[in-house]
Design a protein around this nucleic acid. Sequence first.
DNA 1: GTAGGTGCAAAAGTTTTGCAGGCTG
DNA 2: CAGCCTGCAAAACTTTTGCACCTAC
Lengths: 131, 131
Amino acid sequence: MNVNPKLRMTKQRQLILEELRKVKTHPTADDMYQILRKRMPKISLGTVYRNLEILSETGIIQKLEVGGTQKRFDADTSTHYHVRCAICGRVADLHLAPDMNVEKEAAKLTDFQILRHRLEFIGICPECKEH
Amino acid sequence: MNVNPKLRMTKQRQLILEELRKVKTHPTADDMYQILRKRMPKISLGTVYRNLEILSETGIIQKLEVGGTQKRFDADTSTHYHVRCAICGRVADLHLAPDMNVEKEAAKLTDFQILRHRLEFIGICPECKEH
DNA sequence: GTAGGTGCAAAAGTTTTGCAGGCTG
DNA sequence: CAGCCTGCAAAACTTTTGCACCTAC
């Protein structure tokens, strides 16, 4: 699991990874903080931010840059798409087969070197649909 | 131009619209503020934010929720996709034909009511490529 | 004249960082 | 036992908002 030999598996980091793997809700850093405090009351928000950042840099988890004001995190590092509720901001997975062909198409139309793509759907979730 | 009869075309609003239409760089609110101050030194950042918000709510301009920490704005309200530089954050248009079919596909796979989609490419821009 | 808009400044929300001490490997 | 990591708090950064005055219509 340690991609980088300098990474230490502290109690905090382990707990963050463990809890993130439990949820399917694509939590924000503060969501994680609230969850983690139940099991480790003295954990600090700074530690949560630092670890989510480090874990996503090493590729152990994924940082989601979906719309909205906060970043979200996902323990599922496979390429997959998301739907975001325009009203409440909730994010869910959408298991549409990733279309890698669009990257080739895009490469023809730009002088940027294409690395990857993100496809995000915006919609209204069942809860918000019924007011 | 006035979609909403209550909207007034103040000097500030007019200037914001005029300058946004001139650039093709998808500026952030602060980028706009820097541009606008050259022609109207006393304009306030709050006014820039308020107007960009109002203009995008009425559909006169478009608010882009691309990755990164700041929102960006675009006077081109047509559906089109973007490439963002992973290094410097620059955003450029990518005139790939919009694929409305994916929304139908997505609708089959979720209980969210799909409203629209966003496709964003992440890459490295020519300037950053040559360090 | 009136109600929407402005500038200014303070506040709010999110994320980052400096520091002194703690713990992992 | 070196140096990565933590908790805490302050700071940084982005965006929103309250207020008194202003101005487009």
